[in-house]
């Protein structure tokens, strides 16, 4: 194994829409603001792609927090935002049943220049998972 640095235990997965939130994250980069490095941004077309199991599996695999950064009501896919909100509602129900803190999953809207909102979301999630640690789940 190469001199890989210490393994980051608390990982945050960010699902960022390619039309709004992903360029929003780039805009934070252009401003050279810093934020915790335990964040992994995946570019998605519409987060409605992910089934309930995807979120639960992520927690099982050891992801500590997930932020879904959508376009909100400005979603280019007619009806997708509503379907997404509904989906996350059922994910929350499942999480409660499995005793996963529901604060580990957040849905938010981030625009292409919403730098502060982006930083805020990341900061809050990071603080939370530093307090409560990775989810302890049976795989």
């Amino acid at each position: 194994m190469s001199p890989q640095a210490k393994k980051e235990q608390n990982k945050i997965l960010i699902l960022a829409t390619e039309t709004c939130a992903y360029p929003g994250a780039d805009s934070v980069g252009q401003a050279h603001s810093t934020y915790p490095a335990n964040t992994y941004i995946l570019r998605v077309r519409a987060p409605v792609l992910f089934p309930e199991s995807f979120y639960i599996d992520c927690f099982k695999k050891g992801i500590s927090g997930i932020i879904v950064m959508s376009c909100g009501e400005e979603c280019p896919y007619e009806g997708a935002y509503k379907a997404l909100a509904k989906r996350l509602d059922s994910v929350y129900k499942k999480m409660k049943k499995m005793e996963i803190d529901i604060k580990r999953l957040r849905l938010t809207a981030i625009c292409t220049v919403c730098n502060r909102a982006f930083l805020n979301e990341v900061k809050q999630m990071d603080q939370l998972i530093r307090e409560i640690g990775p989810p302890q789940l049976m795989v």
Partner: peptide, 21 residues
């Protein structure tokens, strides 16, 4: 994306680690 989302926002070893991941 290892510039806007790595080297411009993280520094040092963590940046190298994150880029690898």
């Amino acid at each position: 994306n290892i510039r806007e989302q790595v080297s411009w926002v993280h520094h040092g070893d963590t940046a190298t680690d994150k880029a690898s991941v």
